[in-house]
């Protein structure tokens, strides 16, 4: 018996196929936040919610075809990757460098737009390995591609992002620690007549 049969998620998806409402709730509870995070890296929050919901709609619709020999995460993320690839890309964001320094929201928007601007398979490979935390081998299963192709997609994604995020990458990773300024040594007191020169 495949290992996946012993997996609670696989069991619950089988129950979803039998219209068990509680099983769908359990899957929602376990996977909702991670799916949202997956989509939120490429779409603004409202759009990411819609894509998360669409993934669950398709998951439910696919339950009757679920093959228990396929690991549940592969099944789920295959749907999510498909949803991601079909989503219209958000509008291109152009953010002035000064605004990037001031606004975390602006930086987030630039990252989102850059990820969304990747070729769909490269974006999927990147988010599956970084956000869904799949291995390259698992990602290869999801994308139905050999692992070598997944690695190539990852390099492609990273190189493209390095270009798109260049203004962001030039910023310091974090502000320097806040420490009280050390006052310079006090100059020697001036002579009473004010004619003395400051020498160090």
């Amino acid at each position: 018996m495949p290992e996946s049969m012993h997996d609670a998620d696989s069991g619950d998806l089988l129950l979803v196929a039998a219209n068990d409402p509680l099983a769908l709730e359990r899957l929602l509870g376990r996977w909702r936040d991670l799916l949202y995070a997956f989509f939120e890296r490429a779409h603004e929050p409202s759009g990411a919610i819609d894509l998360t919901a669409e993934t669950f709609v398709r998951l439910r619709a696919s339950a009757g075809r679920f093959d228990p020999s396929v690991a549940f995460p592969v099944w789920l993320w295959r749907i999510a990757a498909q949803v991601l690839s079909e989503a219209p890309p958000p509008p291109v964001t152009s953010v002035p460098a000064a605004r990037l320094r001031e606004s975390a929201a602006a930086r987030t928007a630039l990252v989102r737009a850059s990820v969304a601007g990747l070729p769909p398979s490269a974006a999927a490979a990147l988010l599956l390995t970084r956000i869904a935390r799949l291995t390259v081998a698992e990602t290869a299963q999801v994308l139905d591609a050999p692992p070598s192709e997944v690695r190539r997609l990852l390099v492609d994604a990273m190189d493209r992002l390095a270009g798109a995020l260049e203004p962001l990458l030039e910023l310091p990773a974090s502000l320097p620690p806040v420490t009280p300024p050390v006052p310079p040594p006090l100059p020697p007191p001036l002579p009473a007549d004010g004619t003395g020169s400051r020498t160090s």
Binding site: A37, E40, T108
Partner: peptide, 20 residues
């Protein structure tokens, strides 16, 4: 880039459940 990706934008929206 890894650091930026992991950072995300914060918490899960409160209306996520309802909208799903």
């Amino acid at each position: 880039i890894e650091r930026l990706l992991k950072a995300g934008s914060g918490d899960t929206p409160r209306d996520l459940d309802v909208r799903i």
